[in-house]
Amino acid sequence: MRSKTFWQAYARNKAARFGLVIMILVVVLGLFAGVLFPASPWDMVNAPFLPPLSDGALLGTDTLGRDIAAGIAYGARVSLLIGMTSTAVAVVVGVTLGALAGFFGGWVDDALMRFTELFQTIPNFVLTVVLVAIFTPSQRSIISAIAIVSWPPLARLARAEFMSLRSREFVQAAMTTGQSNMAIIFREILPNSLSPLIVSASLMVATAVLLESSLSFLGLGDPNAMSWGYMIGSARTVIRQAWWMSFFPGLAILLTVLALNLIGEGLNDALNPRLSRQGKA
C-alpha cells in the first residue's frame, strides 16, 4: 500500500518519469556495454576522424579511430560507478557524523561541526583536484576524493534532522524506556529522517558525475578507464575540425545529470508530499 502511494506521488511528476526512463536507459547501456560493444573502447576499430553515421561507427570515431558510441557506453559504466560509489561513501560518512553531532549535541556537536566546516571552507572542485593529483589518478582515488568533498552538506542535513527529531515525544519515550543510544539512533530517528537524505543523495550522484567528468576533462581521470569527461577533454582540441567527438559525450553527461536531477525532484515530491504541494501550489 505504502509503495503504491509512493509511486503514485512520484509518477504525478511528468518530468520525474522522463528522468527515470533516461536513467534506466543509461544504466542498461552501462550494464550491457560489453555485449553491445565487445571490443575495448580504447581499440582503434576504424579510420580516425570518421563523422557520425559512417559505416560501422554510428556516432563517428575520434582522433585515433576509436568508436565514440562504444566510448559512451563504457563511459556510462565509469560515470555511474564513480557517481554511485562516491555518493554511498559520502552518505555513510556524512550521516554518521551528522547523526552523532545532532544526537549528542554539546561538545561532540561542536567538535564535529568545526571539523565539517573545515572541509566546507575549501572550494569543492579545487580540493578534489588537489587530492586526486596527490594520490595519482585511479578509480579509487577519484571516488575517495569526490566522497571527501561531498559529505559535509549531508552531515549538516543529518544533524539538523537528528536535532529536531531528538526532542520529539516518541524519541523521549524510547529514552525513558531505557533503550540504548544506538537503538534509538538506528530504530527511531534514522528511519524518520531518511526522506530528505535520500533526496539530497540522489542530487549528489549528479554532482559526483559532473565532478568526475570535470576531473577527466582536465586529464586527472583514471587513464585506463574510458569516461565521458575524458572523451570531451581529448576532443576539445580538435573541436573546430570534429564537433562530434565532444558533442556526444557532452550530450550523455547533460542527459544523465538532468535525469538525476529530475529523479531527485520526483523523490522529493513522493517523500515529502507536504513540502512539495506547498511549493507547487
Binding site: S40, W42, D43, M44, L64, T136, P137, P223, N224
Partner: peptide, 18 residues
C-alpha cells in the same frame, strides 16, 4: 593510449600512469 592498445595485441597488458 595508442601504445597501450598496440601492445595488448601481442598480449602485453599496459596500465597507464599519469
Amino acid at each position: 593510449e595508442f601504445i597501450k592498445v598496440s601492445l595488448r595485441q601481442i598480449g602485453v597488458d599496459i596500465t597507464l600512469e599519469n
